[in-house]
């Protein structure tokens, strides 16, 4: 990868399914433009998409910031949503509070946060019931991309 540093922000609107995926596609384009390794791009795209969908499905609005250095991709997603009462439960594969119409679209299967964890090196989730959620994750660019080991920030 070139010795570049990049950052940017995307604004996300709750229930705006017509633009769902635009932020993560954009980020993927940025990473491809910086010649980041394909496997790292794959992991970042998966994690960013899941984070983006969580805001669109569950929150009123949110923002996705990305910061790319020669060592890391750091993504911070802050939303104005109802918050997560039990983070441990939310991280459990298969657990979901999504309504039926969201599930019928193939979302809300309880795989989003586990997918993010699986594809990132560090993950931090902070949530206040009634006050919104902040999700932050990091992918190291210079680590063997296979077998990402997640640590809590």
């Amino acid at each position: 990868m070139d010795n570049k540093v990049a950052e940017g922000v995307f604004f996300l609107t709750g229930k705006d399914f017509s633009n769902a995926g635009a932020a993560s596609s954009n980020l993927k384009g940025v990473l491809e433009g910086m010649s980041v390794q394909p496997d790292i791009i794959r992991r970042a795209a998966i994690a960013a998409f899941e984070a983006e969908m969580n805001v669109i499905i569950y929150a009123v609005a949110g923002m996705m910031h990305y910061y790319i250095t020669p060592e890391t991709i750091r993504i911070v997603v802050k939303d104005m949503g109802s918050g997560i009462p039990d983070i441990g439960l939310a991280m459990t594969e298969g657990y979901s509070t999504a309504p039926d119409y969201i599930r019928e679209m193939g979302f809300g299967s309880g795989m989003g946060l586990p997918n993010i964890k699986k594809n990132t090196d560090r993950l931090d989730l902070d949530s206040v019931v009634g006050g919104g959620t902040t999700l932050e994750f990091i992918i190291y660019l210079n680590k063997d991309s296979k077998g990402a080991k997640n640590e809590t920030l």
Binding site: F17, S18, A20, G21, S25, K28, A45, G106
Partner: peptide, 16 residues
């Protein structure tokens, strides 16, 4: 191969 017909399938296919 899917039965989903809504526009978000294109975002998924593009990302992958």
């Amino acid at each position: 191969i899917t039965l989903q017909t809504h526009q978000n399938i294109i975002a998924v296919a593009t990302l992958r």
